[in-house]
């Protein structure tokens, strides 16, 4: 290769490597802040600040959703199967919200460790299938990945 072109090639490679290292360091420094939410285990370990706006994400525990009779208030428990965080929320829940499904709740932790949520988002997984297929899988007792439930 012509020496001038080789020099330019080295310059280009240097540019790519240098910017990758810089971006890598920045994302490493910000690794906690890039996470959209805290998992319940981290909240239980005291990793989440009390009285500040945070988000907690996990699965909605089965049989934990309790709706108030006379208002929009609803309480449920988020879990990552290691720890649990109780959540209280007054507002309209997204359509996909349900027990055994993923959810992200935003709000402030009170002194009792209850998340007073101002917003609840539903989180869904990457599995897509027609309802009939889902029903058939349900009957056979296997999930999409072929593992027994």
């Amino acid at each position: 290769m012509h020496p001038v072109r080789r020099q330019r090639l080295i310059l280009v490679l240097f540019l790519v490597v240098f910017s990758s290292v810089a971006a890598g360091l920045v994302t490493y420094a910000l690794r906690g802040n890039i996470n959209l939410f805290f998992p319940p285990a981290e909240v239980a370990a005291g990793g989440a600040p009390v009285g500040q706006s945070i988000r907690v994400g996990g699965m909605v525990l089965e049989d934990s959703v309790q709706r108030s009779q006379d208002s929009l208030e609803v309480s449920f428990t988020l879990t990552d199967y290691e720890a649990q965080v109780p959540v209280v929320y007054a507002g309209i829940l997204p359509d996909l919200f349900g027990e055994g499904q993923g959810a992200v709740a935003a709000g402030k932790l009170d002194e009792n460790g209850v998340l007073q949520a101002t917003e609840v988002l539903a989180k869904h997984d990457e599995n897509y299938m027609p309802p009939e297929v889902a029903e058939a899988l349900e009957k056979s007792g296997y999930d999409k990945k072929g593992q027994a439930r």
Binding site: Q101, H124, Y128, P130, P131, V133, A134
Partner: peptide, 8 residues
């Protein structure tokens, strides 16, 4: 022509 998703 495709089926809707079982959840969404």
């Amino acid at each position: 022509f495709t089926s809707p998703d079982f959840r969404q």
